[in-house]
Computed example of a mutant assay.
Amino acid sequence: MAALPARAFETLAGAAWVYDITTGTVLLEKNADEPLPPASMSKLMTLNMLFEALKDGRAKMDTTFSVSTKAWKMGGSKMFVKPDDRPTIEELIHGIIINSGNDACVVVAEGLAGSESNFASLMTKRAQDLGMTQSHFANASGWPDPNHKMSARDLGFIATRLITEFPEFYPYFAMTDYNYKDRVPANSRNRNPMLRTSGSGDWTADGLKTGHTSEAGYGLVGSAVHENGRRIVFVLTGMASEAERAQEAEAITNWAFREFVQKTVAAKGTRIADADVWLGASARVGLVVGEDLQLLLPSLAQDKLSASVVYTGPIEAPVEAGQKLADMVIEVPGIPPMTVPLVAENAVAKGGFTSRIKTAFGILAKRVMAEIGS
Rank of each mutant, 00 (worst) to 15 (best):
E320G: 12
P341Q: 10
G131D: 13
P83F: 04
D33C: 02
F257M: 15
A256S: 14
A6D: 01
E10P: 02
V108D: 00
P38K: 06
V67A: 12
T25N: 12
H136K: 15
L300S: 13
S77P: 02
G131S: 08
G334A: 02
R86I: 13
V261C: 03
V261N: 05
L28M: 14
M175Q: 07
G222K: 00
M79Q: 11
S115N: 11
V261Q: 09
P37I: 04
P318T: 10
E244V: 11
N147V: 12
G14S: 14
W72H: 07
M175P: 00
L4D: 08
V340L: 02
G114L: 05
G101N: 03
A317L: 08
Y311R: 10
D84Y: 15
P193N: 11
K73V: 15
L36D: 05
M123H: 00
R183N: 10
T23Q: 10
N254E: 14
M239C: 03
P144D: 12
S299M: 03
I330M: 10
P38V: 05
Q247I: 13
V289K: 00
T197S: 15
T46A: 03
E320C: 13
L130N: 03
A6P: 03
T359D: 11
M45L: 09
L236H: 01
G24K: 12
P193W: 01
N179V: 00
M45H: 04
A275G: 07
A273N: 14
A152C: 04
H136L: 07
A152Q: 00
E10L: 15
V233M: 11
T22V: 06
P37Q: 01
A240M: 14
